[in-house]
Design a binder for these strands. Structure first.
Lengths: 160, 160
DNA sequence: ATAAATTGGTTGACCCGTCAACTATAATGT
DNA sequence: ACATTATAGTTGACGGGTCAACCAATTTAT
């Protein structure tokens, strides 16, 4: 306790680091993936990642209702609502009333929106392939399995 | 195009889903890990995850300066600053001027802060072990490798 | 038929994390 | 020695994401 006179409760814990390291790694990788996609989309299409997802869900997956988007892509419905409004204002999306359900609105792409998706799809696919190419099939399988297990463990409520 | 008359730009793309699925999975797992830790800390110690990290870095790792915390745990320095202020206000941390560097302050735990860390450490270790037990060594290794590769791929700037 | 519960969508509030600007002090270069 | 550059820490602002309240319309149960 002479030179290094720091009040410690316990010796540094590699275990503690591991846990924090894990969530740290996960959030970091995810942040970088998002940042990369966001950059491309901003430069190439002038939209955000969320907006791209919405456009792709409408234009590629053929979904037509906000609620479907939320469910399909686990997007918050509030966020979908706000972004739809933006996309409509920018003339990329049309939202017209649905006859069969007065609450709902039917979503679709405008010509401009369709053009933008068509123009953007190839580059996003390219990126896709880059990412996919980074992992071999075995790694991908283990990654998914590990994430499943972690997610399950993270749901435990009764370990205390 | 009869019954399912939806204007699509392309057929639904499993590849697109994969990418979004990947970031979706990552963010989801991470969110759950955070939520779990946050819940435990809130119920058990009345602090947030960030605050716990700070307390542990001071009390367990023995760090004494804000800047060291930021570097060590990749926490934003602004966030550290604000949280330190809260922790001081709650009487868990002391921050006194540093003689050798007028800009810096020396951080330490109060008795109350030390007690709280001592009380909270065991349960966080328990959680730690739960998570660690969820993956075998091989899975953990592949997980790390896969995250490394993905992170690298996510840093590529010139794929377009 | 009508009350209750569910669903679609909008809006406001809030937290977390990041970034930028700024002040004060220290270290470095010439 | 003095000007430049780097560092410690504070603060304000912003975007992404979650949550809750709310309205209108629709489905379900009794």
């Amino acid at each position: 306790m002479s030179q290094n006179d720091i009040a410690r409760i316990a010796e540094p814990q590699p275990e503690l680091q591991l846990q924090q390291f894990l969530t740290y790694r996960l959030s970091r990788v995810q942040a970088k993936l998002n940042a990369q996609a966001s950059r491309v989309l901003r430069e190439h299409a002038g939209i955000t990642l969320t907006q791209w997802r919405i456009l792709a869900l409408i234009g590629v997956e053929g979904l037509r209702r906000s609620a479907d988007l939320s469910r399909h892509a686990a997007l918050d419905k509030g966020m979908v609502s706000r972004n739809i409004k933006l996309l409509v204002a920018e003339g990329l999306v049309v939202a017209e009333g649905d006859d069969s359900d007065q609450r709902a609105q039917t979503l679709g792409l405008t010509g401009k929106g369709r053009q933008l998706v068509e123009r953007t799809l190839p580059i996003m696919r390219k990126r896709q392939n880059l990412l996919r190419g980074a992992l071999d099939a075995g790694e991908l399988a283990v990654l998914y399995r590990a994430l499943d297990k972690l997610e399950l463990a993270a749901e435990a409520q009764d370990f205390d």
